[in-house]
Amino acid sequence: QWKVGDKCSAIWSEDGCIYPATIASIDFKRETCVVVYTGYGNREEQNLSDLLSPICE
């Protein structure tokens, strides 16, 4: 189960590419979260089910 502060990978809606991110907040009722893309600072809402394991850098 994901928690705030977890590192993950998420698909950015603008280009469909996968980027490393950190979970900033979680809404368990809606099963969504807000991620912050590492190195970019962009925030975006994602479905918890769409999150991927962190990418090894």
Rank of each mutant, 00 (worst) to 15 (best):
residue 1 Q to T: 01
residue 1 Q to R: 14
residue 1 Q to S: 12
residue 1 Q to I: 00
residue 2 W to H: 14
residue 2 W to P: 15
residue 2 W to L: 14
residue 2 W to I: 15
residue 3 K to P: 15
residue 3 K to S: 08
residue 4 V to H: 07
residue 4 V to L: 00
residue 4 V to A: 01
residue 4 V to N: 10
residue 4 V to P: 14
residue 4 V to T: 09
residue 4 V to Y: 08
residue 5 G to D: 09
residue 5 G to F: 02
residue 5 G to Y: 04
residue 5 G to Q: 01
residue 5 G to H: 02
residue 5 G to V: 03
residue 5 G to C: 12
residue 5 G to N: 05
residue 6 D to K: 00
residue 6 D to M: 09
residue 6 D to Y: 06
residue 6 D to Q: 00
residue 6 D to P: 00
residue 6 D to S: 00
residue 6 D to I: 10
residue 7 K to V: 11
residue 7 K to L: 12
residue 7 K to W: 11
residue 7 K to Q: 12
residue 7 K to D: 12
residue 8 C to D: 00
residue 8 C to N: 00
residue 8 C to E: 00
residue 8 C to T: 00
residue 8 C to I: 10
residue 8 C to Q: 00
residue 8 C to L: 00
residue 9 S to C: 15
residue 9 S to D: 04
residue 9 S to W: 15
residue 9 S to M: 15
residue 9 S to T: 08
residue 10 A to K: 06
residue 10 A to M: 08
residue 10 A to G: 00
residue 10 A to P: 06
residue 10 A to H: 03
residue 10 A to Y: 06
residue 10 A to F: 06
residue 10 A to Q: 06
residue 11 I to Y: 07
residue 11 I to M: 08
residue 11 I to Q: 03
residue 11 I to G: 03
residue 11 I to W: 08
residue 12 W to Y: 10
residue 12 W to T: 02
residue 12 W to N: 10
residue 12 W to K: 01
residue 13 S to K: 13
residue 13 S to E: 05
residue 13 S to D: 07
residue 13 S to T: 08
residue 13 S to A: 09
residue 13 S to V: 09
residue 14 E to K: 15
residue 14 E to A: 12
residue 14 E to P: 03
residue 14 E to G: 15
residue 14 E to W: 13
residue 14 E to I: 15
residue 15 D to W: 08
residue 17 C to A: 09
residue 18 I to V: 11
residue 18 I to L: 12
residue 18 I to F: 10
residue 18 I to C: 15
residue 18 I to K: 02
residue 18 I to Y: 14
residue 18 I to W: 07
residue 19 Y to K: 01
residue 19 Y to W: 05
residue 20 P to Q: 11
residue 20 P to F: 12
residue 20 P to D: 12
residue 20 P to V: 10
residue 20 P to N: 14
residue 21 A to F: 06
residue 21 A to H: 07
residue 21 A to N: 01
residue 21 A to Q: 07
residue 21 A to W: 06
residue 22 T to D: 01
residue 22 T to G: 04
residue 22 T to L: 11
residue 23 I to D: 06
residue 23 I to T: 03
residue 23 I to L: 00
residue 24 A to R: 05
residue 24 A to W: 11
residue 24 A to I: 15
residue 25 S to M: 10
residue 25 S to H: 05
residue 25 S to R: 02
residue 25 S to G: 03
residue 25 S to D: 08
residue 25 S to F: 11
residue 25 S to A: 08
residue 26 I to M: 01
residue 26 I to Q: 01
residue 26 I to H: 01
residue 26 I to K: 00
residue 26 I to L: 03
residue 26 I to W: 00
residue 26 I to R: 00
residue 26 I to Y: 00
residue 26 I to F: 01
residue 27 D to H: 01
residue 27 D to W: 08
residue 27 D to G: 00
residue 27 D to N: 02
residue 27 D to F: 06
residue 27 D to M: 05
residue 27 D to R: 01
residue 27 D to S: 00
residue 27 D to K: 01
residue 28 F to H: 14
residue 28 F to T: 12
residue 28 F to C: 05
residue 28 F to S: 11
residue 28 F to G: 09
residue 29 K to W: 12
residue 29 K to S: 12
residue 29 K to H: 11
residue 30 R to I: 10
residue 30 R to K: 13
residue 30 R to Q: 10
residue 30 R to W: 10
residue 31 E to I: 09
residue 31 E to W: 11
residue 31 E to F: 11
residue 32 T to W: 08
residue 32 T to G: 04
residue 32 T to V: 10
residue 33 C to G: 00
residue 33 C to V: 12
residue 33 C to N: 00
residue 33 C to F: 05
residue 33 C to K: 00
residue 33 C to W: 10
residue 34 V to P: 02
residue 34 V to A: 03
residue 34 V to M: 08
residue 34 V to D: 03
residue 34 V to I: 13
residue 35 V to D: 05
residue 35 V to A: 01
residue 35 V to F: 04
residue 36 V to L: 07
residue 36 V to I: 14
residue 36 V to M: 08
residue 37 Y to P: 04
residue 37 Y to Q: 03
residue 37 Y to T: 05
residue 37 Y to E: 05
residue 37 Y to K: 01
residue 37 Y to F: 15
residue 38 T to I: 13
residue 38 T to G: 03
residue 38 T to H: 10
residue 38 T to F: 08
residue 38 T to A: 11
residue 39 G to T: 08
residue 39 G to P: 10
residue 39 G to H: 12
residue 39 G to N: 08
residue 39 G to A: 09
residue 39 G to K: 08
residue 40 Y to H: 14
residue 40 Y to G: 07
residue 40 Y to I: 12
residue 41 G to H: 08
residue 41 G to N: 10
residue 41 G to W: 09
residue 41 G to R: 03
residue 42 N to A: 13
residue 42 N to I: 15
residue 42 N to C: 13
residue 42 N to T: 14
residue 42 N to W: 15
residue 43 R to S: 14
residue 44 E to V: 03
residue 44 E to T: 06
residue 45 E to K: 04
residue 45 E to L: 09
residue 45 E to V: 12
residue 45 E to Q: 10
residue 45 E to R: 09
residue 45 E to M: 09
residue 45 E to P: 04
residue 46 Q to Y: 02
residue 46 Q to P: 06
residue 46 Q to W: 04
residue 46 Q to E: 06
residue 46 Q to I: 10
residue 46 Q to L: 11
residue 47 N to H: 12
residue 47 N to F: 13
residue 47 N to E: 07
residue 47 N to S: 06
residue 48 L to G: 05
residue 48 L to A: 04
residue 48 L to V: 06
residue 48 L to M: 02
residue 48 L to H: 03
residue 48 L to D: 00
residue 48 L to Q: 06
residue 48 L to E: 05
residue 49 S to Q: 09
residue 49 S to R: 13
residue 49 S to D: 04
residue 49 S to E: 09
residue 49 S to G: 09
residue 49 S to F: 08
residue 50 D to A: 11
residue 50 D to F: 08
residue 50 D to C: 07
residue 50 D to E: 09
residue 50 D to T: 04
residue 51 L to M: 06
residue 51 L to Q: 06
residue 51 L to V: 01
residue 51 L to P: 06
residue 52 L to G: 01
residue 52 L to I: 05
residue 52 L to F: 10
residue 52 L to K: 06
residue 52 L to C: 05
residue 52 L to N: 02
residue 52 L to M: 12
residue 52 L to V: 03
residue 53 S to T: 04
residue 53 S to E: 14
residue 53 S to G: 11
residue 53 S to W: 13
residue 53 S to Q: 14
residue 53 S to H: 07
residue 53 S to Y: 11
residue 53 S to L: 15
residue 54 P to L: 09
residue 54 P to M: 10
residue 54 P to G: 09
residue 54 P to C: 11
residue 54 P to I: 10
residue 55 I to V: 12
residue 55 I to N: 09
residue 55 I to F: 12
residue 56 C to H: 14
residue 56 C to D: 15
residue 56 C to P: 15
residue 56 C to A: 14
residue 56 C to F: 14
residue 57 E to I: 12
residue 57 E to G: 13
